[in-house]
Design a protein around this nucleic acid. Structure first.
Lengths: 243, 243
DNA sequence: TAGTGGTCTAGACCACCGT
DNA sequence: CGGTGGTCTAGACCACTAA
């Protein structure tokens, strides 16, 4: 029977979608507990084992965090443990890295065009907020980021807010804009540093730098950030696990 | 009670270790089926659900592959599906990538020293086999690899064997040397191409290239390969998923 | 001590595969 | 059709946390 539909969807997978809808719709805030497994089982009229399988997969995908004896919580970028999930730059010696200091280089409004428009699913001409910043690790400048965000969500993001905030941008996006980053895709290339990049990073124009283009997605796989990072890699490296 | 041992180890986790020992010891060959869940449950005197949890985790870690209706199989690098698990270079346009052609540039014996010795846990002076090769994608040279391997395992690896073989090196290591790569760590930097690299890749000396240093591990987290890859990234990029 | 997630079991039934 | 993994249930008990 060619073309016959897959026609079967496991119960736990449907429960998973229901919980995801709750997360995307803000039924429970980041960091807050969701109902217990027993309560969810009653609510959805399935066994606790079925809820468990749904919750387990959501925890594996970093949407939820389980804590034995306490409950299950909505994942949040405010935890120390996840600070380096999206920042893969490491010292060459294996000393523990401290969270970098941020220096705002530029803030402006712009119109979507070209690559940023395409990757963010915006029509040319739609509003953008663009941020350029420098990341300084242990006194060493290491990354220049240019971050493009749809104004439809991030209009309120201005230099004052950026300067006031400590810690990761994704924490700010989550608490101030109700937009939680779920996953990201990065494309990494080698490039020659241009004048602005070189001077910000304390290098010479033309020195090799890593160019990391990132698209970050929120719920429903919606792209909401395009970021181009230029990484200085003479004392640090981009680490990756192949599993 | 400071220093008290963790003292509790779930049953499924112990079963997992037993199966891992079987895999590491070659009880079942790559690609071959392991016993059914029911059989394993009888053998280890636990319920099928407990075996299931152990096998599920091993499948998630790519040690096993489950196929509904058929059985559970030892993972192997010989499958098309896993060919690009360790090779993250992609075309900039999103055309599907075909498996690259390999050209052997150099083969030699050497003595472990410096970085390779340290990363492979070898004493200075122990034997190495070193391979340099070029990877050509769709007629475009894109990667120069220098691969260092402990002679204690790979002594038999020579130019004749390398030239005869088609497909991924890890497939060859698995079938010819009984050494299956489980995971790898990569450290990525930007560098200026040296003369040899530039000419192999069709670039100019000093052009920016990606330098990818990889240590690959087999069972028991034993490092058995150090590989330095120089990647040309003007038409391709290194892709990464942040999840 | 009450409540949460974590483990383990036993059994029923379903989906899928090869023959 | 028989055998495999996949789903779902119900229930018992364990480990951990907070009050």
């Amino acid at each position: 029977m060619p073309g016959s539909a897959p026609t079967f969807r496991p119960l736990y997978s449907q429960i998973k979608s229901l919980i995801m809808e709750g997360l995307a719709g803000g039924a429970w805030a980041p960091g807050a507990p969701i109902p217990s497994e027993a309560e969810l089982a009653r609510r959805y009229k399935v066994s606790q084992g079925t809820v468990r399988k749904a919750v387990e997969e959501l925890a594996q995908e970093h949407h939820l965090v389980r804590r034995q004896g306490r409950g299950t919580f909505v994942a949040t970028h405010a935890e120390e443990r996840t600070q380096f999930r999206f920042l893969r730059l490491c010292r060459d010696d294996d000393q523990p890295e401290t969270y970098p200091e941020t220096r705002l280089l530029e803030w402006r409004r712009a119109r979507a065009a070209g690559e940023a428009a395409r990757l963010l699913n915006l029509k040319p001409g739609e509003g953008l907020v663009v941020v350029r910043r420098l990341l300084v690790f242990d006194g060493e400048p290491a990354v220049v980021d240019e971050i493009s965000l749809p104004a439809s969500i991030f209009r309120r993001l201005d230099a004052e807010l950026l300067n006031r905030y400590r810690g990761s941008l994704y924490k700010l996006f989550e608490t101030e804009f109700g937009t939680r980053m779920i996953r990201a895709e990065e494309r990494i290339r080698a490039a020659a540093a241009d004048g602005a990049t070189a001077s910000a990073l304390g290098m010479r124009r033309g020195d090799p730098v890593l160019r990391v283009d990132r698209v970050a997605f929120t719920y429903a796989d919606r792209p909401v950030e395009f970021r181009r990072g230029m990484y200085r890699t003479d004392r640090r490296h981009y680490r990756n696990q192949l599993v």
